[in-house]
Simulated scan of single mutants.
Amino acid sequence: MPKSEPFERHTDRYEDWFDTHQSAYRSEVEALERLLPQPGFGLEIGVGSARFAAPLGMQVGLDPAAEMLARARDRGVDVVRGVAESLPFGDGTFDTALMVTTICFVDDIARTLAEARRVLRPDGALVVGYIDRDSPVGRVYQEKQSENPFYRDAVFVSTDELVEAMKAAGFSAFEFVQTIYHWPGEIDDPEPIDSGYGEGSFVGIRATR
């Protein structure tokens, strides 16, 4: 079952995080921008309120939470209600598929990645942004998981695990960016954005279909 209930009930709290942590949020957007110079016709899977889809140029967003989709629509994104494991789009529809802080909420990572690959055009790209399970922020999120309505049912993954799953789904030509080197609440200015992974808590991966 999709883990959407907290996002339906606590939409305002979700939105407030981005307003309160502007520098951390901007760092994540800018990191992903480096992987999306020309997104073309794009889909964000797990679009939420389109905090990433809108600035990154994704035209379509999918999410199981109706309250989130209403916010995404207000930000100019065409929205569809659905789940990552069963995308309601034809084969080869999109140039880019984006998932940001979504992979930890899906029920089936392998099926999610297979569906993302299916709806991409032959030279399309999948971009995934997430908090690395083995990073400083990832470890704190796991320690305090029971206290957070959003992350209570999340299953965090490491970068190495995710790369292996993406390879198994048929993706290749990996590129990595990383940012967020401090606790988000302590970040007053945008964080550095570097290639690779293993130091920053927020990691972005771009891979080709």
Rank of each mutant, 00 (worst) to 15 (best):
Q59S: 15
R71E: 13
V100F: 04
G46T: 03
L36G: 10
G48W: 10
T93H: 07
T96L: 01
V77D: 05
L69C: 04
R51V: 10
F94A: 00
E44Y: 00
G46K: 08
P55N: 07
F89T: 00
P39Q: 06
F41I: 12
V80P: 04
R81Y: 08
P88F: 03
R73L: 12
V47E: 01
G92R: 13
G40D: 09
L43T: 00
A53W: 01
G42S: 13
T101F: 12
Q38M: 11
A50D: 08
V47A: 13
G46Y: 09
A53E: 11
D95M: 02
L43H: 02
M99R: 01
T101V: 14
V47C: 12
S49R: 05
I45T: 14
L35G: 05
T96G: 03
T93A: 13
A50G: 08
R51D: 01
D63P: 03
P64K: 05
F52Y: 15
P88G: 05
D91C: 05
F52N: 00
D74T: 13
L98I: 12
T96I: 03
A84C: 02
T101H: 10
S86V: 11
G57N: 03
G57A: 05
A66T: 15
V60D: 02
V77Y: 07
A50M: 05
D63T: 02
G61F: 07
Q38L: 11
A54K: 09
M58L: 15
G46M: 04
D78K: 14
L98M: 07
D91K: 12
A72F: 06
S49Q: 11
A50E: 02
G40H: 04
I45E: 00
V83K: 10
L56R: 09
T93Q: 13
E67H: 13
A50N: 07
D95H: 11
A50H: 03
M58H: 01
G90I: 02
P64Q: 09
F89E: 04
F41Y: 15
P64E: 11
G90A: 15
G40M: 02
D78V: 14
V77K: 00
G48F: 05
A65V: 09
A54E: 11
G48P: 11
L62F: 05
G61K: 00
A97K: 00
G92Q: 13
L36P: 03
T96S: 08
A84D: 09
F89W: 13
E44I: 04
P55M: 03
D91N: 14
A70F: 08
G92V: 08
A72S: 05
A66D: 15
V100W: 04
G76Q: 07
G82N: 07
L36N: 09
D63R: 06
